[in-house]
């Protein structure tokens, strides 16, 4: 194991890690926003919009991210829409992530026992007050494990963006192996980089789950 090699090329991986985190971060934020909108639509029972959300969830969950990315990156330009690779990556990730977040959040909201809402009602809470003080805290508490799992899942999925020539960790690894033939070291750097990205997220996730587990005890 050539440590000198690894130290020498580490900076490339650091940059690549930034790329991964960058894409994942924006993809996640958009996923959550999209998820919240979809859940709101589902709960508000808007008729047509509900079916659209349903169709969206099914379509994005049953197709691979890679195909979605290729479609955006190679296909859209034919329609005159030319997005940068970063934009395609973030949009693709958000498209996929949105449906996963919708399911996670929906599970949270549906898990709030009816009795809680009734207690609030009899105590005189307005619908808005019930939503803010009773529904949301309990829904969040229930949904957090699923949301955390989705975050980790999406960060891993972002490894696919190397396919549309974004210099993320996978891309850099492949490049390095192609140039230097030092596969062991390159792959080791790969593993280390992903561990460095994902382990903290996992730990923070566990802490958050514990902090908000009041509805699950």
């Amino acid at each position: 194991m050539d440590f000198g090699f690894m130290m020498h090329y580490a900076p490339y991986f650091v940059n690549a890690a930034y790329m991964t985190v960058f894409i994942s971060f924006f993809g996640l934020v958009l996923s959550l926003v999209l998820g919240l909108i979809c859940v709101a639509v589902q709960m508000a029972n808007v008729p047509v919009a509900r079916q659209i959300v349903r169709a969206y969830v099914e379509l994005s969950r049953n197709t691979p991210l890679l195909v979605q990315l290729y479609f955006l990156y190679f296909g859209l330009p034919k329609l005159g829409v030319s997005w940068s690779a970063e934009t395609c990556a973030i949009v693709g990730l958000a498209f996929l992530g949105g449906s996963y977040m919708t399911e996670a959040l929906r599970g949270g909201f549906e898990a709030v026992p009816r009795v809680q809402l009734e207690s609030a009602r009899v105590l005189g809470f307005s619908p808005v007050q019930t939503f803010l003080h009773v529904t949301v805290p309990q829904a969040l508490s229930t949904a957090i494990p699923a949301v955390v799992a989705n975050v980790i899942f999406l960060v891993k999925e972002s490894s696919v963006v190397s396919a549309i020539a974004l210099a993320d960790v996978m891309y850099v690894t492949k490049d390095l192996m192609g140039q230097t033939y030092d596969t062991y070291e390159s792959l080791t750097l790969l593993v280390i980089t992903y561990l460095v990205i994902l382990l903290p997220i996992s730990i923070v996730g566990t802490v958050l789950e514990r902090r908000f587990d009041y509805a699950r005890r």
Partner: peptide, 19 residues
């Protein structure tokens, strides 16, 4: 579980072959 599947594929394809 923690490694992305693509990374695992790389490790298997490029790594194991050598090893």
């Amino acid at each position: 579980r923690i490694m992305p599947q693509l990374a695992l594929l790389f490790i298997a394809f490029y790594g194991f072959a050598q090893a």
